[in-house]
Amino acid sequence: NITNLCPFDEVFNATRFASVYAWNRKRISNCVADYSVLYNFAPFFAFKCYGVSPTKLNDLCFTNVYADSFVIRGNEVSQIAPGQTGNIADYNYKLPDDFTGCVIAWNSNKLDSKVGGNYNYLYRLFRKSNLKPFERDISTEIYQAGNKPCNGVAGFNCYFPLRSYGFRPTYGVGHQPYRVVVLSFELLHAPATVCGPKKST
């Protein structure tokens, strides 16, 4: 009989979020998941679920829940969905086509923008091939755009693969920082350890 609540607040209220190319993952297990707390949290810009209804989450049990978190621009949030393409979905964070879970995003301009620009948040701009679902690539190898080998030196046709967002408070909404948490639900042939409040007695 599990009684402790799942530590969703640790994920959602973290002081610093990860850059999207180096997205953070927390495994959540052996706890009671009260999703209504999240669902009623006012400032969400997006709360979209795939393969599961957000209002039914509290009735369900899962083997594991993974909480992935990172920061992207407002106009990139739409790429955090199954079957998407674009710089983020291709080179930074890719969801599987059969994704079961929820994508939760909110504007973090007050936290993550600075006058003069916040350059701490990076994304991958160049990559030889697209990421596989949930693949994480933190390499900083110089990207070779031409035929000539770069030998690890940036220059003509040789690019550092990461780019900084440089968030400023005055940017338009599409270019403002958004914090994103992706909850993915794993249902294995194993005992369920993460259940909603109704199922955990």
Score class of each variant (00 low, 15 high):
Val77Met: 07
Lys198Arg: 13
Pro54Met: 14
Val20Arg: 02
Leu57Trp: 08
Cys150Lys: 06
Cys61Trp: 06
Pro161Ser: 07
Ser29Thr: 13
Gly174Tyr: 09
Leu5Glu: 12
Thr3Leu: 06
Asn1Val: 07
Asn147His: 13
Leu60Met: 15
Phe134His: 10
Val182Met: 01
Lys94Tyr: 00
Ser108Asp: 05
Gly146Met: 06
Ala192Ser: 12
Ser19Asp: 08
Ala154Gly: 13
Cys150Ile: 05
Ala154Arg: 14
Ser69Asp: 02
Lys26Ala: 07
Arg163Leu: 08
Phe99Thr: 00
Leu131His: 02
Gly196Arg: 10
Thr15Asn: 06
Cys158Trp: 05
Ile138Met: 13
Lys132Val: 08
Val182Ala: 00
Asn151His: 12
Leu183Gln: 00
Pro7Leu: 07
Cys102Lys: 00
Thr201Asp: 13
Arg27Trp: 05
Lys94Phe: 00
Asp9His: 13
Asn151Gly: 13
Gly86Ser: 03
Asn30Gln: 06
Pro169Ser: 10
Ala154Asp: 15
Phe156Leu: 13
Val37Ile: 13
Gly101Cys: 01
Ala42Val: 10
Asp34Trp: 04
Ile80Trp: 00
Gly172Arg: 12
Phe126Lys: 15
Asn4Asp: 11
Asp59Met: 07
Ser164Gln: 10
Ala14Met: 05
Gly51Gln: 07
Val115Trp: 10
Ser29Asp: 09
Ile80Ser: 02
Phe47Leu: 07
Ala14Val: 05
Leu60Glu: 07
Thr55Ser: 14
Thr193His: 11
Trp23Val: 03
Gly196Trp: 08
Phe44Glu: 13
Ile142Asn: 08
Gln84Val: 09
Phe156His: 14
Phe45Tyr: 15
Leu111Glu: 15
Gly196Gln: 10
Gln79Pro: 01
Ile138Pro: 10
Val194Trp: 09
Leu125Ala: 15
Ala33Cys: 08
Lys56Glu: 14
Trp106Ile: 07
Ala192His: 14
Ser200Asp: 13
Leu187Asn: 15
Cys195Pro: 11
Ala22Ser: 11
Tyr165Asp: 05
Ile142Cys: 08
Tyr93Asp: 02
Gly196Ile: 10
Ala67Gly: 00
Thr170Ile: 07
Lys128Ser: 13
Gln79Phe: 01
Tyr119Gly: 15
Gln84Ile: 06
Glu10Phe: 03
Lys128Pro: 13
Thr100Trp: 06
Glu10Gly: 06
Phe99Met: 01
Arg136Lys: 11
Ser164Ile: 05
Cys49Gln: 00
Val11Phe: 05
Tyr165Arg: 04
Ser184Met: 07
Ala81Val: 03
Ser129Leu: 06
Cys102Asp: 00
Asp98Ala: 08
Cys31His: 06
Ala154Ile: 11
Cys31Gly: 05
Asn40Val: 05
Ala190Glu: 14
Asp34Met: 06
Pro7Ser: 10
Ile72Lys: 00
Val181Ser: 00
Tyr35Ala: 08
Ile72Asn: 01
Trp106Glu: 01
Asp97Leu: 11
Cys61Arg: 13
Asp68Tyr: 04
Ala46Phe: 09
Ser36Gln: 10
Leu38Cys: 03
Phe156Asp: 15
His189Asp: 15
Ile142Pro: 13
Pro82Asn: 01
Ile28Asp: 01
Pro169Cys: 06
Glu76Arg: 00
Pro7Glu: 11
Pro43Arg: 07
Thr55Asn: 15
Ala145Lys: 13
Val65Thr: 05
Asn87Val: 15
Ile88Leu: 04
Cys195Arg: 08
Asn109Arg: 07
Val77Ala: 03
Glu76His: 07
